[in-house]
Protein backbone atom coordinates (compact mmCIF):
# COMPACT_ATOMS: atom_id res chain seq x y z
CA UNK A 1 0.00 0.00 0.00
CA UNK A 2 1.26 3.44 -0.76
CA UNK A 3 0.95 6.11 1.85
CA UNK A 4 -0.67 8.44 -0.64
CA UNK A 5 -3.56 6.09 -1.34
CA UNK A 6 -6.81 7.71 -0.30
CA UNK A 7 -9.58 5.29 0.51
CA UNK A 8 -12.48 6.27 -1.74
CA UNK A 9 -16.10 6.17 -0.71
CA UNK A 10 -16.59 3.08 -2.82
CA UNK A 11 -14.19 1.15 -0.66
CA UNK A 12 -15.40 2.43 2.68
CA UNK A 13 -19.09 1.75 2.19
CA UNK A 14 -20.13 -1.42 0.43
CA UNK A 15 -21.67 -0.86 -2.98
CA UNK A 16 -25.47 -0.97 -3.10
CA UNK A 17 -25.35 -3.07 -6.28
CA UNK A 18 -25.82 -6.85 -6.16
CA UNK A 19 -25.89 -9.39 -8.93
CA UNK A 20 -28.95 -11.62 -8.85
CA UNK A 21 -30.74 -14.15 -11.03
CA UNK A 22 -33.64 -11.73 -11.40
CA UNK A 23 -31.14 -9.20 -12.70
CA UNK A 24 -29.77 -11.74 -15.17
CA UNK A 25 -33.30 -12.41 -16.46
CA UNK A 26 -33.95 -8.68 -16.84
CA UNK A 27 -30.62 -8.30 -18.62
CA UNK A 28 -31.47 -11.07 -21.07
CA UNK A 29 -34.86 -9.51 -21.72
CA UNK A 30 -33.20 -6.16 -22.50
CA UNK A 31 -30.74 -7.92 -24.81
CA UNK A 32 -33.54 -9.73 -26.63
CA UNK A 33 -35.83 -6.77 -27.14
CA UNK A 34 -33.06 -4.37 -28.19
CA UNK A 35 -32.14 -6.34 -31.30
CA UNK A 36 -34.00 -5.77 -34.54
CA UNK A 37 -33.70 -9.44 -35.47
CA UNK A 38 -35.91 -10.33 -32.50
CA UNK A 39 -38.74 -8.20 -33.86
CA UNK A 40 -38.36 -9.71 -37.33
CA UNK A 41 -38.55 -13.17 -35.80
CA UNK A 42 -41.56 -12.20 -33.70
CA UNK A 43 -43.32 -10.73 -36.71
CA UNK A 44 -42.50 -13.74 -38.87
CA UNK A 45 -43.82 -16.13 -36.22
CA UNK A 46 -47.14 -14.32 -35.97
CA UNK A 47 -47.50 -13.95 -39.74
CA UNK A 48 -46.72 -17.61 -40.33
CA UNK A 49 -49.13 -18.94 -37.69
CA UNK A 50 -51.95 -16.56 -38.62
CA UNK A 51 -51.27 -16.78 -42.36
CA UNK A 52 -51.23 -20.56 -42.47
CA UNK A 53 -54.41 -20.58 -40.38
CA UNK A 54 -56.14 -18.41 -42.94
CA UNK A 55 -54.72 -20.36 -45.87
CA UNK A 56 -55.73 -23.71 -44.45
CA UNK A 57 -59.17 -22.35 -43.62
CA UNK A 58 -59.63 -21.36 -47.27
CA UNK A 59 -58.29 -24.73 -48.40
CA UNK A 60 -60.81 -26.34 -46.12
CA UNK A 61 -63.60 -24.17 -47.50
CA UNK A 62 -62.56 -24.94 -51.08
CA UNK A 63 -62.39 -28.63 -50.40
CA UNK A 64 -65.86 -28.61 -48.85
CA UNK A 65 -67.39 -26.81 -51.80
CA UNK A 66 -65.69 -28.84 -54.52
CA UNK A 67 -66.23 -32.57 -54.69
CA UNK A 68 -63.19 -33.26 -56.86
CA UNK A 69 -60.90 -31.30 -54.60
CA UNK A 70 -62.47 -32.90 -51.61
CA UNK A 71 -61.60 -36.33 -53.01
CA UNK A 72 -57.94 -35.47 -53.65
CA UNK A 73 -57.57 -33.73 -50.31
CA UNK A 74 -58.75 -36.84 -48.60
CA UNK A 75 -61.17 -35.18 -46.25
CA UNK A 76 -61.26 -31.96 -44.34
CA UNK A 77 -59.37 -30.38 -41.52
CA UNK A 78 -60.62 -30.01 -37.98
CA UNK A 79 -60.83 -26.40 -36.77
CA UNK A 80 -57.89 -26.97 -34.43
CA UNK A 81 -55.80 -28.40 -37.25
CA UNK A 82 -56.58 -25.25 -39.17
CA UNK A 83 -55.44 -22.81 -36.51
CA UNK A 84 -52.33 -24.82 -35.59
CA UNK A 85 -51.29 -25.47 -39.20
CA UNK A 86 -48.69 -22.68 -39.14
CA UNK A 87 -46.93 -24.21 -36.17
CA UNK A 88 -45.20 -26.64 -38.52
CA UNK A 89 -43.19 -23.75 -39.91
CA UNK A 90 -43.24 -21.45 -36.87
CA UNK A 91 -41.27 -23.90 -34.77
CA UNK A 92 -38.39 -23.57 -37.19
CA UNK A 93 -38.42 -19.78 -36.79
CA UNK A 94 -38.47 -20.08 -33.01
CA UNK A 95 -35.62 -22.60 -33.22
CA UNK A 96 -33.57 -20.02 -35.12
CA UNK A 97 -34.38 -17.46 -32.42
CA UNK A 98 -33.29 -19.96 -29.76
CA UNK A 99 -29.97 -20.56 -31.49
CA UNK A 100 -29.31 -16.86 -32.07
CA UNK A 101 -29.97 -15.87 -28.45
CA UNK A 102 -26.72 -17.55 -27.52
CA UNK A 103 -24.64 -17.76 -30.70
CA UNK A 104 -24.90 -14.05 -31.51
CA UNK A 105 -23.06 -13.39 -28.25
CA UNK A 106 -20.18 -15.54 -29.45
CA UNK A 107 -20.03 -14.13 -32.96
CA UNK A 108 -20.03 -10.55 -31.66
CA UNK A 109 -17.81 -10.96 -28.60
CA UNK A 110 -20.68 -9.84 -26.33
CA UNK A 111 -20.29 -13.08 -24.37
CA UNK A 112 -17.15 -11.66 -22.71
CA UNK A 113 -19.13 -8.71 -21.38
CA UNK A 114 -21.95 -11.01 -20.31
CA UNK A 115 -19.69 -13.43 -18.45
CA UNK A 116 -17.78 -10.59 -16.82
CA UNK A 117 -21.10 -9.42 -15.33
CA UNK A 118 -22.18 -12.95 -14.36
CA UNK A 119 -18.97 -14.91 -13.91
CA UNK A 120 -20.74 -17.91 -12.39
CA UNK A 121 -22.00 -18.40 -15.97
CA UNK A 122 -24.76 -20.99 -15.52
CA UNK A 123 -27.33 -18.33 -14.47
CA UNK A 124 -26.76 -16.70 -17.87
CA UNK A 125 -28.00 -19.78 -19.72
CA UNK A 126 -30.88 -20.26 -17.27
CA UNK A 127 -31.91 -16.62 -17.68
CA UNK A 128 -31.77 -17.01 -21.45
CA UNK A 129 -33.97 -20.12 -21.17
CA UNK A 130 -36.53 -18.27 -19.03
CA UNK A 131 -36.71 -15.27 -21.36
CA UNK A 132 -36.72 -17.36 -24.54
CA UNK A 133 -39.29 -19.82 -23.19
CA UNK A 134 -41.66 -17.01 -22.19
CA UNK A 135 -41.13 -15.22 -25.50
CA UNK A 136 -41.88 -18.39 -27.48
CA UNK A 137 -44.93 -19.01 -25.31
CA UNK A 138 -46.35 -15.53 -25.77
CA UNK A 139 -45.64 -15.50 -29.51
CA UNK A 140 -47.31 -18.88 -29.97
CA UNK A 141 -50.38 -17.92 -27.93
CA UNK A 142 -50.77 -14.62 -29.77
CA UNK A 143 -50.17 -16.38 -33.10
CA UNK A 144 -52.83 -18.99 -32.38
CA UNK A 145 -55.33 -16.34 -31.25
CA UNK A 146 -54.69 -14.40 -34.47
CA UNK A 147 -55.03 -17.60 -36.51
CA UNK A 148 -58.35 -18.32 -34.83
CA UNK A 149 -59.55 -14.76 -35.44
CA UNK A 150 -58.70 -14.79 -39.14
CA UNK A 151 -59.92 -18.37 -39.71
CA UNK A 152 -63.26 -17.93 -37.96
CA UNK A 153 -64.99 -15.90 -40.67
CA UNK A 154 -63.89 -18.47 -43.27
CA UNK A 155 -65.07 -21.37 -41.13
CA UNK A 156 -68.36 -19.55 -40.60
CA UNK A 157 -69.00 -19.74 -44.33
CA UNK A 158 -69.42 -23.47 -43.91
CA UNK A 159 -71.20 -23.10 -40.58
CA UNK A 160 -68.26 -24.60 -38.73
CA UNK A 161 -67.90 -23.33 -35.21
CA UNK A 162 -64.64 -23.19 -33.40
CA UNK A 163 -65.11 -25.45 -30.44
CA UNK A 164 -61.91 -25.46 -28.50
CA UNK A 165 -63.33 -27.13 -25.43
CA UNK A 166 -63.32 -30.73 -26.60
CA UNK A 167 -60.49 -33.00 -25.50
CA UNK A 168 -58.86 -33.44 -28.91
CA UNK A 169 -58.82 -29.72 -29.57
CA UNK A 170 -57.37 -29.02 -26.14
CA UNK A 171 -54.68 -31.60 -26.67
CA UNK A 172 -53.63 -30.20 -30.04
CA UNK A 173 -53.59 -26.62 -28.76
CA UNK A 174 -51.66 -27.33 -25.59
CA UNK A 175 -49.43 -29.76 -27.45
CA UNK A 176 -48.57 -27.13 -30.05
CA UNK A 177 -47.79 -24.61 -27.34
CA UNK A 178 -45.56 -27.01 -25.42
CA UNK A 179 -43.86 -28.21 -28.60
CA UNK A 180 -42.94 -24.74 -29.83
CA UNK A 181 -41.59 -23.67 -26.45
CA UNK A 182 -39.56 -26.87 -26.03
CA UNK A 183 -38.14 -26.68 -29.56
CA UNK A 184 -36.89 -23.15 -28.97
CA UNK A 185 -35.25 -24.31 -25.71
CA UNK A 186 -33.70 -27.30 -27.49
CA UNK A 187 -32.26 -24.91 -30.08
CA UNK A 188 -30.88 -22.74 -27.26
CA UNK A 189 -29.14 -25.80 -25.85
CA UNK A 190 -27.58 -26.67 -29.21
CA UNK A 191 -26.52 -23.04 -29.60
CA UNK A 192 -24.79 -23.18 -26.21
CA UNK A 193 -23.03 -26.42 -27.11
CA UNK A 194 -21.91 -25.43 -30.62
CA UNK A 195 -21.46 -21.64 -30.07
CA UNK A 196 -21.73 -21.12 -33.80
CA UNK A 197 -24.86 -19.86 -35.56
CA UNK A 198 -24.61 -21.80 -38.81
CA UNK A 199 -23.50 -24.99 -37.11
CA UNK A 200 -26.25 -24.91 -34.51
CA UNK A 201 -29.01 -24.04 -36.98
CA UNK A 202 -27.87 -26.83 -39.35
CA UNK A 203 -27.87 -29.29 -36.48
CA UNK A 204 -31.36 -28.35 -35.35
CA UNK A 205 -32.75 -28.41 -38.90
CA UNK A 206 -31.08 -31.75 -39.57
CA UNK A 207 -32.59 -33.19 -36.42
CA UNK A 208 -36.07 -31.86 -37.18
CA UNK A 209 -36.25 -32.38 -40.94
CA UNK A 210 -33.39 -34.32 -42.43
CA UNK A 211 -33.03 -37.23 -40.01
CA UNK A 212 -36.75 -38.19 -40.14
CA UNK A 213 -36.67 -38.15 -43.95
CA UNK A 214 -33.46 -40.16 -44.13
CA UNK A 215 -34.76 -42.76 -41.69
CA UNK A 216 -38.27 -42.95 -43.15
CA UNK A 217 -37.63 -45.45 -45.99
CA UNK A 218 -36.07 -48.02 -43.69
CA UNK A 219 -38.39 -50.73 -42.51
CA UNK A 220 -36.18 -52.04 -39.80
CA UNK A 221 -37.34 -52.57 -36.22
CA UNK A 222 -34.40 -50.76 -34.69
CA UNK A 223 -34.75 -47.76 -36.94
CA UNK A 224 -38.51 -47.59 -36.45
CA UNK A 225 -37.84 -47.61 -32.73
CA UNK A 226 -35.27 -44.82 -33.07
CA UNK A 227 -37.70 -42.77 -35.19
CA UNK A 228 -40.19 -42.74 -32.33
CA UNK A 229 -37.72 -40.84 -30.20
CA UNK A 230 -36.98 -38.06 -32.68
CA UNK A 231 -38.33 -34.66 -31.60
CA UNK A 232 -40.92 -34.52 -34.40
CA UNK A 233 -42.28 -38.01 -33.64
CA UNK A 234 -42.24 -37.44 -29.90
CA UNK A 235 -44.19 -34.23 -30.44
CA UNK A 236 -46.66 -36.02 -32.72
CA UNK A 237 -47.27 -38.52 -29.97
CA UNK A 238 -48.69 -35.88 -27.64
CA UNK A 239 -50.08 -33.44 -30.20
CA UNK A 240 -52.07 -35.57 -32.61
CA UNK A 241 -55.61 -36.46 -31.78
CA UNK A 242 -56.39 -39.98 -30.66
CA UNK A 243 -57.65 -41.35 -33.98
CA UNK A 244 -54.73 -39.92 -35.95
CA UNK A 245 -52.41 -41.85 -33.71
CA UNK A 246 -54.04 -45.04 -34.88
CA UNK A 247 -53.36 -44.40 -38.58
CA UNK A 248 -50.44 -46.73 -38.77
CA UNK A 249 -47.91 -44.23 -37.38
CA UNK A 250 -45.59 -45.84 -34.87
CA UNK A 251 -45.69 -43.40 -31.99
CA UNK A 252 -44.93 -43.39 -28.32
CA UNK A 253 -47.74 -42.91 -25.84
CA UNK A 254 -48.62 -39.23 -25.34
CA UNK A 255 -47.06 -39.22 -21.88
CA UNK A 256 -43.86 -40.87 -23.12
CA UNK A 257 -43.81 -38.52 -26.11
CA UNK A 258 -44.01 -35.50 -23.82
CA UNK A 259 -41.26 -36.88 -21.59
CA UNK A 260 -39.01 -37.49 -24.61
CA UNK A 261 -39.68 -33.99 -25.94
CA UNK A 262 -38.87 -32.47 -22.56
CA UNK A 263 -35.63 -34.48 -22.56
CA UNK A 264 -34.81 -33.08 -26.03
CA UNK A 265 -34.99 -29.61 -24.50
CA UNK A 266 -33.38 -30.30 -21.13
CA UNK A 267 -30.47 -32.55 -22.13
CA UNK A 268 -28.85 -30.12 -24.61
CA UNK A 269 -29.37 -27.31 -22.10
CA UNK A 270 -27.65 -29.27 -19.34
CA UNK A 271 -24.76 -30.22 -21.63
CA UNK A 272 -24.61 -26.60 -22.79
CA UNK A 273 -24.50 -25.39 -19.18
CA UNK A 274 -21.70 -27.81 -18.26
CA UNK A 275 -19.68 -26.77 -21.31
CA UNK A 276 -20.36 -23.08 -20.64
CA UNK A 277 -18.99 -23.53 -17.14
CA UNK A 278 -15.93 -25.47 -18.29
CA UNK A 279 -14.79 -23.87 -21.49
CA UNK A 280 -12.83 -20.69 -22.01
CA UNK A 281 -15.11 -17.87 -23.08
Amino acid sequence: MTATAVAPATQASPSPYRRSFGGDVRSEWIKLRTLRSTWWVAGATLVVIAGFGLLTAFLNHASLSDEQLSATMGGIFTPTEIITSGAQLAYLILAVLGVLVVTNEYSSGMIRSTLAATPTRVPVLLAKAVVLGLTSLVLTVVGLVLAALVAMPVLAMDDISLDLADADAQRTLWGTLVFLVLISLMALGFGAILRHTAGAISTVVALLFVVPIVLFPFNNDVITEIEKYLPSSAANAFMTTSDAAQQGLALLSPEAGLAVMIAWAVVPLVIGAVLLKRRDA
Binding site: R18, S20, N104, E105, M110, R112
Partner: peptide, 26 residues
Protein backbone atom coordinates in the same frame (compact mmCIF):
# COMPACT_ATOMS: atom_id res chain seq x y z
CA UNK B 1 -12.67 -4.69 -17.37
CA UNK B 2 -11.96 -3.61 -20.91
CA UNK B 3 -10.73 -6.81 -22.50
CA UNK B 4 -11.43 -6.12 -26.13
CA UNK B 5 -12.90 -3.03 -27.64
CA UNK B 6 -15.87 -4.67 -29.31
CA UNK B 7 -17.30 -7.09 -26.79
CA UNK B 8 -20.69 -5.84 -27.90
CA UNK B 9 -23.40 -6.88 -30.34
CA UNK B 10 -23.15 -4.59 -33.41
CA UNK B 11 -26.93 -4.31 -33.69
CA UNK B 12 -27.45 -2.93 -30.20
CA UNK B 13 -27.03 0.71 -29.23
CA UNK B 14 -24.34 1.68 -26.76
CA UNK B 15 -26.95 2.70 -24.20
CA UNK B 16 -28.92 -0.53 -24.50
CA UNK B 17 -25.70 -2.53 -24.23
CA UNK B 18 -24.88 -0.76 -20.97
CA UNK B 19 -28.48 -1.02 -19.70
CA UNK B 20 -28.43 -4.78 -20.29
CA UNK B 21 -25.20 -5.23 -18.34
CA UNK B 22 -26.37 -2.82 -15.64
CA UNK B 23 -29.56 -4.84 -15.16
CA UNK B 24 -27.62 -7.86 -13.86
CA UNK B 25 -26.54 -5.82 -10.82
CA UNK B 26 -29.61 -3.57 -10.52
Amino acid sequence: ALLEAKAIHPGRSARNHLLALAATHR
